[in-house]
C-alpha cells in the first residue's frame, strides 16, 4: 500500500446543542487514510459534515474524539505552538472567494502572510519576490500584488486564495467547495489549475465538493459522506461507475448530464424526504429513513465499511453486502443499481 500522509481514526466532532440538551453529530466516527500524492474527493449533501471533517483534519475545529495523524505526527496531541508550526504543511482553500480574503489587505499582504508567520523569507524584498512567484504559479500577473480583493473577479480571487494556501509549500491541501461559487467556465479554469499544481508540486489534495462531475473529474479516489460518516470510499472509476451503496447510487443518478437524449431516458432515483438532522441520527444504518432498499437488519444494526465490488480498496457500509439478514425479495446491491426504485 502506498504511503499514508493523513489518517483519521474514530474521528468525532460533536457540537453541543443550544439549550444544553443533546449533541449535533457533525462528524460521527470517521476512519480515513489519505495517501501521499493522491487527490481524494469528498462528496455528500449539504450539512453532512464535509467541511467539519476537512477542518477537523487540520484541527481547525477541535475533534471531540478520535485522532488525526499527519505524516506520522498525532495532531490531537500537539500543543498550540507546535500546531501552529504544523500549519505550514497543510493549506486550505475556501468556498467563497469573496469572503475568504481580508478586504482591507492587498493581495501581496494576503499571500505573504504565511511567509511572515513561519519566517520563510527574511526581508521585504525576498518576500515580495516569492509573492510574485506564487502569483505567477497560479496564473496571475505579479503586477497585481498591490491591489485589493474587490478589484478582482471571483476566479481571480480564488487564485489568490490558492496562492496563499501554497505559500508555505504545504504537502496537503484541503479545497472546501473551492469551485462552488464560480461560473462554469471559471470552474474549469480553477479545476485545471488545481490539477496542474497537484502534479507540479506533488501535493496531496482533499477536494470537498457537492458537485459529483467535478469530483469524478479531479479525484483519484472518492469518499461519500452521509450524516457525519463515510459510507463508501474507493477508486474514482469504481465509485463513479459502479457505486455499491444505495445512497451513492441515488446521488450519482441525480447528477444531470448535458445530453438531452440521455437525460430523457435515464432513470433517476428520486430520494423521498430530507436528510435527517445530525442531532437525531437514525438507529442502525443512518441512511435507512430514505433508503429505497432498506430491509430488516437496517434499523437495528449499524453497517461497517466492508470490501465491495470488484475494484481493490473499494469499501461501502451497507447490509446489502453483508451477511446479516436477507434483502426482501432477495435483491442485491447490483440489482438495486440496475433497476432504480422510485
Amino acid at each position: 500500500m502506498s504511503d499514508i500522509l493523513v489518517s483519521a481514526r474514530g474521528l468525532e466532532v460533536h457540537f453541543p446543542l443550544r439549550g444544553g440538551k443533546g449533541v449535533l453529530r457533525a462528524v460521527d466516527g470517521v476512519d480515513l487514510d489519505i495517501y501521499r500524492g493522491e487527490t481524494l474527493g469528498l462528496v455528500g449533501e449539504s450539512g453532512c459534515g464535509k467541511s467539519t471533517l476537512g477542518n477537523a483534519l487540520l484541527r481547525l475545529v477541535p475533534p471531540t474524539a478520535g485522532t488525526v495523524t499527519f505524516d506520522g505526527t498525532d495532531l490531537t496531541a500537539l500543543g498550540r505552538r507546535a500546531m501552529r508550526e504544523m500549519r505550514r504543511r497543510a493549506g486550505m482553500v475556501f468556498q467563497d472567494p469573496f469572503a475568504s480574503l481580508d478586504p482591507r489587505r492587498t493581495v501581496a499582504q494576503t499571500v505573504s502572510e504565511p511567509l511572515e508567520v513561519h519566517g520563510l523569507r527574511s526581508g521585504r524584498r525576498e518576500r515580495a519576490a516569492r509573492v510574485g512567484e506564487l502569483l505567477e504559479l497560479v496564473g496571475l500577473d505579479p503586477a497585481v500584488a498591490g491591489r485589493y480583493p474587490h478589484e478582482f473577479s471571483g476566479g481571480q480571487r480564488q487564485r489568490v486564495g490558492i496562492a496563499r494556501a501554497l505559500a508555505g509549500e504545504p504537502d496537503f491541501l484541503v479545497c472546501d467547495e473551492a469551485i462552488a461559487s464560480l461560473d462554469v467556465s471559471v470552474q474549469a479554469q480553477v479545476l485545471n489549475l488545481l490539477r496542474r499544481l497537484q502534479r507540479q508540486l506533488g501535493l496531496t489534495l482533499l477536494f470537498i465538493s457537492h458537485d459529483l462531475s467535478a469530483i469524478r473529474h479531479i479525484s483519484d479516489r472518492i469518499a461519500v459522506m452521509y450524516l457525519g460518516r463515510i459510507v463508501e470510499i474507493g477508486p474514482a472509476s469504481a465509485v463513479g461507475s459502479t457505486p455499491q451503496m444505495p445512497y451513492t447510487q441515488a446521488l450519482l443518478s441525480a447528477v444531470p448530464v448535458p445530453h438531452p437524449e440521455l437525460e430523457r431516458t435515464r432513470q433517476r432515483i428520486v430520494l423521498r424526504g430530507d436528510v435527517p438532522s445530525p442531532a437525531a441520527v437514525p438507529s442502525g444504518c443512518r441512511f435507512r429513513t430514505r433508503c429505497p432498499a432498506a430491509f430488516e437488519p437496517c434499523p437495528d444494526v449499524d453497517p461497517a465499511l466492508q470490501p465491495v465490488g470488484t475494484a481493490p480498496d473499494h469499501v461501502a457500509a451497507c447490509h446489502l453486502h453483508g451477511v446479516i439478514g436477507t434483502p426482501v425479495d432477495g435483491r442485491t446491491a447490483e440489482d438495486v443499481s440496475a433497476a432504480p426504485v422510485d
Binding site: L58, R87, R88, G91, S100, D102, E113, V117
Partner: peptide
C-alpha cells in the same frame, strides 16, 4: 472566513 483562513495558515 478570512479570519479562519489566516488561522489556517498558522497565524
Amino acid at each position: 472566513v478570512y479570519v479562519r483562513a489566516s488561522r489556517s495558515i498558522g497565524a
